[in-house]
């Protein structure tokens, strides 16, 4: 699938914030040079802010456990050619189970959870796999249109191996009744929307402890590395 059939257009009037922020001029094609064909590998981009082994577990970052439905979110990161993307930083952030972010700009009247920040990081393993432990995020209201609610989602940030592969996206949960009225989800061409929806994964649930969802991610092509 070509770029325009997968990614949302920058101007999408149903999502009002695009109206003053989407560029008016068409994007200029840039044949990638070495700057774009490379990118920060592994955790090197984090400098002194290294990944802690517990960063993948959002339920163990505070003295007590957060409230909510405990979930495992896992998947494989591959490139457009199907090759796994190993040793690559994955960052996530999400609301707590009540749909609230611990962010100064989120003031809607849902409770904060003192035991949940909702921020996680990990590196993909040699097969490109990642795994987080969290609680299921809640839906939350926003002011885009009358009685607007975002479907429950987890924000994902991925680097791949090259600047061209950088991706920020959102993972949704299967069967969410809020999909139809969400302009952010629906900005993606219909045929590509299923790629944003995780699937319930019974095989990775842990009896009497956690449900599991699988969300596989496909980044753009990995540039061919020139032999030095």
């Amino acid at each position: 699938m070509t770029y325009s059939r997968v990614h949302p257009p920058l101007r999408w009037p149903a999502y009002r914030s695009t109206l003053r922020r989407a560029p008016s001029s068409p994007l200029v094609t840039l044949p990638p040079g070495l700057t774009e064909q490379t990118g920060p590998a592994g955790a090197a981009l984090l400098g002194d802010h290294q990944v802690d082994p517990l960063d993948h577990d959002l339920t163990r970052q505070h003295p007590s456990e957060p409230l909510g439905e405990r979930i495992i979110v896992h998947g494989q990161v591959r490139d457009a050619g199907g090759r796994p993307v190993p040793d690559s930083l994955v960052e996530i952030w999400q609301t707590n189970a009540a749909g609230r972010y611990p962010h100064h700009a989120d003031q809607h009247p849902a409770p904060l959870d003192p035991n949940f920040t909702g921020v996680g990081r990990c590196l993909t393993d040699p097969a490109g796999n990642y795994r987080f432990v969290s609680v299921k995020p809640g839906a939350y209201p926003w002011r885009n249109h009358d009685n607007a609610w975002r479907p429950a989602h987890i924000h994902f940030s991925l680097f791949g191996r090259a600047f061209t592969q950088r991706l920020i996206t959102q993972m949704y949960f299967p069967g969410d009744p809020l999909f139809d009225q969400d302009p952010i989800f629906n900005s993606v061409p219909a045929a590509a929307r299923p790629a944003l929806v995780s699937r319930f994964d019974l095989s990775q649930t842990v009896p009497e402890w956690a449900l599991a969802y699988r969300f596989d991610i496909v980044l753009g092509d990995t540039p061919v590395e020139e032999e030095g």
């Binding site: 949302p8 920020i168 900005s187 590509a192």
Partner: peptide
């Protein structure tokens, strides 16, 4: 393979993505 579509970063990332020496290349 079908690429994973992009979505907006949204307004609620400033407690999640920045870190102290992030601006110091």
């Amino acid at each position: 393979m079908m690429l994973t579509p992009a979505q907006t970063i949204g307004p609620f990332f400033s407690h999640a993505l920045p870190w102290p020496d992030g601006p110091h290349v």
